[in-house]
Design a protein around this nucleic acid. Structure first.
Length: 249
DNA sequence: AGGCCGATCCTCT
DNA sequence: GAGGATCGGCCTA
């Protein structure tokens, strides 16, 4: 207990943990509520990497009334996707294309397998380490901008320096930036203060949320299950995408 | 046992 | 905008 408290204090994690009930709803209900939350990676006892969730996609479990053949859980439990059928709030990390990882958050009560794919983060803490993790050149910060997040460039920089959007904009880019792997992080409880990977709330209020079709899938490609902070510079995919705008209440 | 293919990213045109 | 890298998981035989 003492050790846990020391870790919690020494790392000074931003914000606070979320309630598990938030994740026990259906994925299309949970997804927009994750926008603006922080995904926090603890590295050892001191280092902290964090990004604000600006884009997510919902994937519907096999019990959902709407079939979702794009979901990994669509055909029922397998050794790979078993975390999705467990309790809400746990990380499902899988490998894709032989070289990358993607991270999901399990939703719904145990036995149901809806989930949220985290697709893009706005880097908040540890940007320099994120750039190193991504194999990008060192970031250069202007005077006074090394603490607060610098303004987002909306166009690629001409000098070849990394576009800050590219640090963690994209489901595999964000895993690379935070050092998330299947071996180390699949199954972790994101709502446990001792976990190396957590979702936390620092009070940020999501404004307008854009709802569009999901990206990069073949099946059920029309379902409006992608949610992003409208117009945010760090979202992945096409800049202008057809969709509805909702305001969270 | 073998084949297919993906919730991606990067490079090049 | 197109194509290649690269391999684990899942399906078929």
């Amino acid at each position: 207990m003492r050790v846990k408290e020391m870790i919690a204090r020494n790392t000074r994690l931003p914000g606070q943990l979320l309630a598990r009930t938030l994740f026990e709803g259906t994925p299309e209900r949970v997804a927009p509520r994750l926008l603006g939350k922080l995904l926090v990676r603890r590295v050892g006892e001191r280092e902290l990497l964090a990004g604000r969730i600006v884009e997510v996609e919902a994937y519907l479990g096999p019990h959902h009334e709407t079939p979702d053949p794009a979901a990994h859980s669509h055909r029922g439990p397998t050794p790979r996707n078993q975390v999705l059928f467990g309790p809400a709030g746990h990380a499902y990390v899988y490998a894709i294309y032989g070289r990358y990882f993607c991270m999901n958050i399990a939703c719904e009560p145990e036995g149901r397998a809806g989930c949220i794919l985290v697709r893009a983060l706005e880097p908040v803490m540890g940007m320099e380490q994120m750039a190193r993790n991504r194999g990008l050149p060192a970031l250069e910060f202007r005077e006074g901008h090394n603490r607060a997040f610098p303004p987002l460039p909306l166009e690629r920089r001409k000098d070849g320096a990394p576009d800050l959007r590219m640090l963690a904009g994209g489901p595999s880019r964000l895993c690379q930036a935070l050092g998330i792997t299947r071996a180390a992080h699949n199954g972790l409880d994101l709502l446990d203060a001792r976990s190396a990977l957590q979702v936390r709330d620092d009070g940020f209020c999501a404004g307008r949320v854009r709802v569009t079709a999901r990206i990069g899938i073949r099946h059920a490609a029309e379902l409006p299950l992608r949610f992003c902070l409208d117009g945010h510079g760090c979202m992945s995919g096409p800049r202008q995408m057809r969709g509805l705008v909702m305001v969270l209440g």
